[in-house]
Nucleic acid binder design. Structure first.
Lengths: 154, 154
DNA sequence: TTGATATAGATGCAATTGCATATATATGCG
DNA sequence: CGCATATATATGCAATTGCATCTATATCAA
């Protein structure tokens, strides 16, 4: 009541606030739709795809857990348990990493590669439907540029 | 191997794919940073703020649960339990809704209003830091416009 | 009136996440 | 070497989420 919070703390402009609200809504809406499409096709969630994709691109189909972590949006402890599930499902294997006794290799299996391919078919269709049909390439490019600014030097 | 998946399933263009990756990354990064700022200030997570804001704007500070659901990104069963927690924390109360025996009122308390205000101070600062410092108003406006297209007619 | 169907909200249970910490190994420094 | 600190990964436990279903009430049509 007595001091002035408006000057004490910088207020985001209405444009910023609006962008934020739409960022949350759009992300949740599109992500939800894509996850739903995967589930309908009896496929695992997107996190699994991210891991499989990184592994399938890596030399010898193998990466260290921390490398997967860097390339994806997964927290260390979540990744550790996701790998447990994927291992149990036969999509990856873990091996000791000889150069460093603390390390592990995570290796994609043939089943993992084929799962990645099956998921991509559904994922690609969902992306097209939920994003591609709503933005042209110029708009998508512009969107990506603007979003890139947000991720920098967080 | 034998048929042609490229023609059978529409592939999203690289622009679309890139926009999607950046959408996920930016949202997670900014959301994570904001949540972190709230936690550091010993405040509850953003979902609580969304509910408190809607209630504080509503006539008599009260809404039906399904109205909160429509205005926020919360699923019915999650909202129900969030309201349990907020009730226990003294920020809202529930009352029977006389016109319809199935319904409830959710009413913001004074403690709820002051929590909303306290959270906004931190939230506003975080938005400014994590978004406002990275986009000017014209860019934010453009971003909001592009994202709006994504939420339409999902 | 009665039964069929719809709607509002709550809840049991399993799966996932977050948080802190554990374990094992490595590295650097006196 | 021997200790302090850092790194890679795993794990126990509590909180949150998702899913299905439940309860209660409302609506509608025969």
């Amino acid at each position: 009541m007595s001091d002035d919070p408006e000057t004490a703390h910088p207020q985001p402009s209405p444009f910023i606030t609006r962008a934020w609200v739409h960022l949350m809504r759009a992300q949740q809406r599109v992500l939800g739709a894509i996850e739903q499409d995967l589930k309908t096709a009896d496929l695992p969630p997107l996190g699994w795809y991210d891991v499989l994709l990184e592994l399938s691109r890596a030399t010898d189909g193998r990466l260290r857990p921390y490398e997967i972590e860097e390339r994806t949006l997964l927290a260390q402890h979540n990744l550790s348990r996701l790998l447990d599930r994927m291992d149990k499902a036969g999509l990856v294997q873990r091996e000791v990493y000889a150069e460093d006794g603390r390390g592990r290799w995570v290796i994609i299996t043939e089943a993992g590669r084929s799962m990645q391919a099956r998921m991509w078919r559904v994922y690609a269709g969902a992306l097209q439907r939920h994003l591609g049909d709503k933005l042209n390439d110029a708009q998508a490019d512009q969107l990506a540029e603007l979003l890139t600014a947000l991720s920098r030097s967080a």
